[in-house]
Amino acid sequence: MTVLEPVTAAVLGIGLLHERLQVSGSGLTVLIVATLVMAVSTVALAREEAHLQEEL
């Protein structure tokens, strides 16, 4: 599994399958926070993987 799998899945779902979420109020806040956490986690995992590759 690569660190970009979640991002790729989201892009394919939105771009190719035209998936949409209908949220409002607190649901929108949760969605925004979850998206930010996913983005930060993806960057952190990518950096860690790059660091491990350098050690080899």
Rank of each mutant, 00 (worst) to 15 (best):
T2N: 14
I32G: 05
L21C: 00
M38G: 11
V7D: 00
G25V: 13
T42H: 04
P6L: 03
V11S: 03
R47S: 10
H51R: 13
L31N: 14
L21W: 00
H51T: 04
P6K: 09
Q53D: 15
L31S: 14
S24G: 10
S26L: 08
A44Q: 02
V30N: 12
L31T: 06
P6E: 05
E49V: 14
T8V: 15
P6Q: 07
L56K: 06
S24D: 12
R47C: 15
V11K: 12
V7C: 05
H51Q: 10
T2S: 12
L21Y: 04
A34V: 12
V7N: 00
L21G: 03
L4N: 04
L56E: 09
T8Q: 01
G15S: 09
V33H: 04
L36G: 13
T8C: 01
L28D: 07
G25K: 07
P6N: 01
L45I: 11
L56M: 13
L52F: 03
E48N: 14
Q53A: 12
L31V: 13
H51K: 08
G27V: 01
V23K: 01
E19A: 13
A46V: 14
L28K: 11
L4C: 05
R20W: 01
V30Q: 14
A39W: 14
G25C: 09
L17Y: 05
I14A: 11
A50T: 01
M1T: 09
R47T: 03
T29Q: 08
R47W: 10
T35R: 04
E48R: 01
L28E: 14
R47E: 14
S41C: 04
A34M: 14
L12M: 01
T42Y: 03
E48G: 06
V3N: 12
A46C: 11
L12K: 10
I14Q: 06
M38S: 15
L45M: 08
L52V: 11
Q53H: 05
L4F: 03
V7I: 08
T2H: 12
G25H: 03
E49L: 08
E5S: 09
T42C: 09
G13D: 00
V40E: 10
L17E: 00
Q53S: 11
E48V: 12
E19D: 10
T35M: 14
T35S: 03
L16F: 11
A39P: 05
A46K: 08
L28T: 15
V23A: 15
V3S: 07
L45F: 12
E48Y: 05
V11C: 07
V3E: 07
V3F: 11
V30D: 13
V23L: 13
V33G: 02
T29H: 06
V11F: 13
V37T: 14
L28W: 10
A44Y: 11
V3R: 13
I14T: 13
T8D: 02
T35D: 06
T42D: 07
R47K: 12
I32S: 04
I32C: 10
H51G: 07
L45R: 07
R20N: 13
L4Q: 03
G15I: 05
E5R: 08
V7H: 01
A46T: 12
E5M: 02
